[in-house]
Amino acid sequence: MLKDITIGQYFPGQSFIHKMDPRMKIISTLLYIVMLFLAGNLMGICAGILLLILMYQLSGVPMNMVTKSLKPVIPVVIFTSVLNIFFVSGEVLLKFFFIEITREGINLAILMSFRILCLIAGSSLLTYTTSPIELTDAIERLLNPLKKLKVPVHELSMMMTIALRFIPTLIEETDKIINAQKARGADMESGGLMQRAKALVPILIPLFVSSFRRADELAMAMECRCYRGGDGRTRMKQLQYSHRDWIALTVMAGAIVVVLLLNV
């Protein structure tokens, strides 16, 4: 049952966006976010939405995935809209006692809501079209210049890779431990919150112990395979920018220019 959990939300495919260099995908996503925040009026946001729809069409990721990714942010959107509607001063449209609703407030509320929605949908597209491995790889390479500032970039990406590698293993293990404890009569389904939290202890302790043992063994196996940190390490898969990536970069840069022009 626990085994079927997918990590991340990768949606395999062969589209233009899937085939892009993961580094450029991250850069493009960042540029898209910049563009959303530069957009100062509804026209700019409309351009953002248009670009988003275009990207989703290109990626072949079904639209219902978008609604799925947006569901959890709806409370945030409502919250910011309410704040904006009631607390921005300007030309008064409606007035109840001390509450004023202004034109600027409504404008800003709409702007902010769409900005947040586009932001989430846009960054979800990154995780939909990029596998977690590609993502860690790209992050390692993008952050590479930070090595000069003594940021442990290689170590961080190694930790991410190992974490990704062991998620399914540990899920399987948790499953086994749950079953073993159930077989000993552990009751995990009834009782209040506190009781249920307490019932987790006999699962977490064995899981912790075995994780440490695994870590120990893995470290030894890595040492046996001559692992000694990131220095002097090569990679089998080399990332290379292709014409696709330059097109994407141009489109993103163009979009930012358009938004800036619309602001004027």
Partner: peptide
């Protein structure tokens, strides 16, 4: 003994490449 505890990467071929990457072999 435990195959689970000695595989580092999330893809089979990446794991096989792990040792070679460590000793700095050409891609």
């Amino acid at each position: 003994q435990n195959p689970d505890n000695q595989i580092v990467a999330t893809v089979v071929e990446e794991d096989v490449a792990f040792g070679l990457e460590n000793i700095g072999v050409e891609p």
